[in-house]
Structure formats: C-alpha cells, structure tokens
Design a protein around this nucleic acid. Sequence first.
DNA 1: ATGACTCCCAGTGGGAGA
Length: 254
Amino acid sequence: MKLATWNVNSLAVRLPQLLEWLAANPVDALVLQETKLTDDKFPHAEIEAAGYAVQWFGQKTYNGVALLSRSPAQAIQRNIPGLDDEQARVIAGTVDGVRVVGGYFPNGQAPGSDKFAYKMRWLDALRAWLALELQQHAQLVLLGDFNIAPEDRDVHDPVAWAGQIHCTDEERAHFRALQGLGLHDAFRLFEQPPRAWSWWDYRNLAFRKNQGLRIDHVLVSEALRPRVKACVIDKAPRRNERPSDHAPVVVEWD
DNA sequence: ATGACTCCCAGTGGGAGA
C-alpha cells in the first residue's frame, strides 16, 4: 500500500499538477491540505475521472483538506470530535482496513500569539482523539502538514530558526507526545539524505538554495511500523512552474 | 530590512502563510 500527503496551496491553482502527479504516482491514497475551496467548488469529478474516490472538507479562502483513495474510504470523520473548530483541518477515513488521518495543523504564526494558543489547544485535542482512535484501529497513519520541524536536523538554519514558529520547544514537545502514543516518524525509519525538507519558502530562491524545513510528516502506528518499506519526499513537483511551496511525502508498506 | 513570493478576496491594497 502506498500513501502520500501533499499541501497543494490552493487546489484551484494546483489541480492540473495534482492530476499529473497522480498519473505518475498511482498511490492507493492521498491526503491534501490547503485546498482553499468551499465544498461546492471542490473538483471531485476530475479526481473521480482519474480513478479515485474522494472525500473533502473545506471552507472559503483558507485551510481545507481532502482524502483521495482507490477504494472508497469508510467511516469518514471531519475535524476533531469534541473540538469546537471553525477551521477545516482534519479528514479521516478507513481505507483497506487502515485508519488514515489527514491533518493540516495550525501554523501558529508566532509564539505567544492567539494563533499559537489555538495551535496548542488543537494539538491537545488531536492527541486525545488519536489515543481513542488507536484503541479501535491498530493500523493507523497520521499524515499531513504538521507545521512542526521536530528536530534541528529538520531545519536548514537551526540557529536562525531557534525558538521561532515551527521550532519552539512547545511544538516539538507536542510532536514527541504524538510519538508517545506509539506513532513513528516513517521518514526517520530509514537512512535519508542530509538537508531533506518538505517545504521551501517562495522567497529568496529558497528552493534553488535548498533552504527549507521538514514539516510534512507521516506517523505510523506500532502495527504498521514493521511493514513500512520506504518513506520519501518527492521534490519533483516543487520544480514545476507555479509550484506549491510544499512537496509530497510518500510512504509505502506491505 | 517591518522585505523578498504566492494565494485569496478584494478592488487600485492587505492578510496569511511558514
């Protein structure tokens, strides 16, 4: 089974690139973030024509997530149960017996801001919910744009980013707490090239200079961990004309 | 350097992202 996550930064703009990527990378499931579309505008017909079932959950202008799968997903959940949240950030479904949780984690803007407090609240609620989900689904994968660089080796310039958003102790503690549920960073199960990022700023020729962050992640449950065969960041779409600022992350297991 | 780019909604600029 092959799965992927991709923050497309506007599906209206990136739909042609998504269809092109799916044709070249026929994954079994894919979660998207930052679709930035209200549900009535979601391009489900084009995605279905490409051979995928799709569930979507969006809003105007910001956020928005989707779950694409070869086999239709079951037991769809939108956002975190019990968390009063106006922002469309989570879509989960069961695909071929695996609980797939796709998330667009809050950015947080800056430590100390209201948005940072929301990020912390959201992460608390996510962890509490996932603890319950794991009781019911031994095979679970949490993937998406976490907006957290877990360690300094996930940051192109750790000194400049020290204490900045995505790199604060509080965010990293939340990432470790998710790992504490028995979720494993699939990317780090394997030897990886140094300076491997999933996001590069649009400014400053950051992609060309390979200045980025690894903030898009795939976390697999204990039951899945021994089956994982590979986890890679696909930089190819970042070389497109008008690319998303994020690259897809792809995971494969038996 | 309070920047730089891209997207969105708007409307001849500003917020948000990361």
